[in-house]
Design a protein around this nucleic acid. Structure first.
Lengths: 198, 198
DNA sequence: AGGTATTCCTTGCACATGCAAATACCTACC
DNA sequence: GGTAGGTATTTGCATGTGCAAGGAATACCT
């Protein structure tokens, strides 16, 4: 194997094992979960995630950009997915009165029902294929190792807006304004108790 | 949230964190690695994996079915990928003289060169985006937790044919025959030192 | 020997998704 | 007030991959 000018140490057995384990386990878990969700509820995993995140959001709505981050999709990918979910009546789009660029994705009652129906399947699948196969220590270790890696820390899961990735810097007027807009929108939309899921 | 007849306990914070960490970390690592491999070498990650596994096999060839398992693809998916790699001259197909159903995928010299060129990029990427971000303890834990899950244990990485998943049962004549065939083929093909990679 | 079940690989078809570009809008700064 | 730069979303295009089915070959059983 050629070595370039920059000396890189080949992966040792432990390292290679970790790498392969990530790839293989992910593939296995996701494929199984997807098959079950698809067969029983006609949902893809990202589709489920979108519904779930919307159900947890104030007013059951999220900006497309926010939702894309939550669902681990590119903006483009989310647009397609929301297109599809909209065709199926599970989601609808809404404009933002304060910023004409922004589009909200909103969970529909039908989408809520689909999500509720799929929740036990999803939970059972995640448990069966991942969580219950691990000891609490392993779960902790997994979360510890991969959590940092994935660009979020655990605290950020609860407070997405104040993620620990935020580096100390000036808070721009833009951010203040957006925060105000978001808070205003949330206050207006805070009329439905967001059911908890995933 | 509806509860079905089968009571499932919702994921607690630790469990959910582990689940999300797996999804997000995998996405992040793979996306970055893919972008680099594609930009610098015109290879997808599965494409790289195929070349790598072939280079490590006796005679630099593997049955399509074996290769599909190694590359974590369905037979169908592997067929398409090998189609593509064949068009690019990186891989060629070979018949099996002992079993007319079997097709071998064989690494070409051009494929070898591509792999060698891409190896440092891949290694650097895996290190930078995954391995070097973890402590050895975390790597171990990751491999420990996900290794079992992914249906292989660490020993099986070195001895793929005798995977620890093998349950005690009768060895059928079919398996004996296939083993003999494989050994014969390997003996015939064992004329090139398989360069080590990944 | 003949019939059936299983294996191996490929193909038809459909779907999901990302990159790059385009368009419209918003904010900060002069 | 005007402009440059940045943001948000969508669209054109291309690519990769899996399910289900099909066809050929092989193994197993009677």
């Amino acid at each position: 194997m050629a070595t370039t000018g920059r000396q890189l140490r080949p992966l040792d057995e432990r390292e290679m094992s970790a790498w392969h384990a990530l790839i293989r386990a992910h593939n296995r878990v996701v494929r199984k979960l997807e098959a079950e969700l698809e067969a029983e509820h006609g949902l893809t995993l990202p589709g489920y995630e979108v519904l779930a995140h919307l159900s947890e959001a104030p007013g059951e709505q999220l900006r497309m950009s926010e939702l894309a981050q939550h669902a681990v999709l590119t903006p483009s990918g989310l647009t397609r997915l929301v297109d599809k979910l909209t065709r199926e009546g599970l989601v609808r789009r809404d404009k933002c009165s304060a910023d004409a660029r922004v589009v909200y994705a909103v969970l529909t009652p039908q989408g809520r029902r689909r999500l509720e129906a799929a929740y036990p399947t999803h939970l059972r699948g995640v448990r069966e294929h991942l969580i219950d196969a691990l000891t609490p220590t392993q779960q902790e270790a997994l979360s510890d190792a991969l959590g940092e890696l994935s660009g979020i820390c655990r605290a950020a899961l609860a407070e997405a807006a104040a993620g620990c990735e935020v580096t100390p810097r000036e808070v721009t007027q833009r951010e203040v304004t957006q925060r105000e807009v978001t808070q205003r929108e949330e206050a207006e939309a805070a009329l439905a108790a967001a059911p908890r899921t995933t």
